[in-house]
């Protein structure tokens, strides 16, 4: 069995201590939470930190709360915790859609939302989910906390606004009344990274037209939201025609690369297909909410 190269281990007991440790050990230190991205890389010796700072004891970072108009999710919240939260599923069904297809159930017991976002793998699902929901992330650093919109946090594959001496502490999702959302992924097998995936969130106007829309793509080479697709939806009456237009624009915005999961034309087709599917589901969910009196 492959094993990591030697390193020193230290366990942080508070966010402040974790930040001090990051400051002290600099570039050679890596934080570990779930460890399911970092440890396999270390076994392959593609990552060889000198210091591992374990933040699993930071209970203050493991919470799911609705606070005013915000759903606040601590960075150390496990994928399984999010799936277990009925409130998350009710407010943001897209999160449950995505969580159900992230890795596998055992990995989800350890993997964290903060770890997923900070790793920023291009095939990682929660970045798209957070983009679509216009989430903000809270980053703690030597100078205190700062709040970064998702669009600014995620800077590209494996690259985020979180500095080496900083720690992602919370993700905040604005709660929108009447919002419907959905995520769908094509994978070769359960536990595989996405061949492609799409996420969408919509709010319907009183007249039934689309008041707000956001569309995001995973593993399709698009950074940030598919803004043209979303723009084409706003003001439209939901239906196959509108969804097809959005799908076409999402596919145009995508820039997939060929790999073992499929060729470019297939992936671009999936951008279209999955955009239409998540729009259908998101609109149906939004419709169900507005159809219920007081919903």
């Amino acid at each position: 069995m492959q094993v990591p190269a030697p390193f020193d281990y230290v366990r942080a007991t508070s966010v402040a201590e974790a930040l001090q440790l990051l400051e002290r050990h600099g570039e050679e230190a890596r934080l570990i939470a779930g460890g399911h991205s970092l440890l396999p890389m270390m076994k392959l010796r593609l990552a060889r930190p000198d210091w591992i700072i374990d933040i699993n004891d930071l209970d203050e970072l493991r919470h799911v709360t609705v606070d005013g108009g915000l759903l606040r999710v601590g960075a150390l919240t496990r994928h399984a915790d999010l799936l277990d939260s009925e409130e998350v599923g009710r407010l943001f069904p897209i999160v449950h859609d995505a969580e159900r297809v992230i890795a596998d159930p055992v990995v989800r017991n350890r993997g964290t939302i903060g770890g997923s976002l900070a790793q920023a793998d291009p095939a990682e699902d929660l970045t798209t989910v957070c983009d679509v929901l216009r989430a903000e992330v809270v980053v703690a650093g030597p100078a205190g906390e700062r709040t970064v919109p998702m669009a600014e946090f995620h800077r590209g594959p494996y690259e985020t606004a979180c500095g080496q001496n900083e720690l992602l502490v919370e993700v905040r999702f604005p709660v929108r009344a009447g919002q419907g959302s959905a995520y769908e992924k094509v994978e070769r097998r359960v536990g595989d990274w996405a061949v492609a995936a799409a996420g969408a969130a919509v709010v319907l106007a009183d007249d039934g037209t689309i008041a707000e829309a956001a569309v995001g793509l995973t593993a399709l080479g698009l950074e940030g939201l598919a803004t043209d697709a979303a723009a084409a939806l706003v003001g439209q009456r939901p239906g196959e025609e509108a969804f097809a237009a959005a799908g076409r624009l999402a596919a145009e915005a995508s820039a997939p690369v060929e790999d073992g999961r499929g060729p470019v034309d297939y992936k671009r087709h999936l951008a279209d297909e999955l955009t239409r599917r998540v729009m259908r589901t998101a609109v149906a969910r939004a419709g169900a909410l507005t159809a219920v009196p007081g919903g």
């Binding site: 570990i32 399911h36 440890l39 159930p105 350890r110």
Partner: peptide, 12 residues
């Protein structure tokens, strides 16, 4: 909770 023990340090 089920955990993959190859992806967790003894120290953790």
């Amino acid at each position: 909770v089920p955990v993959k023990s190859c992806t967790q340090l003894a120290a953790m």
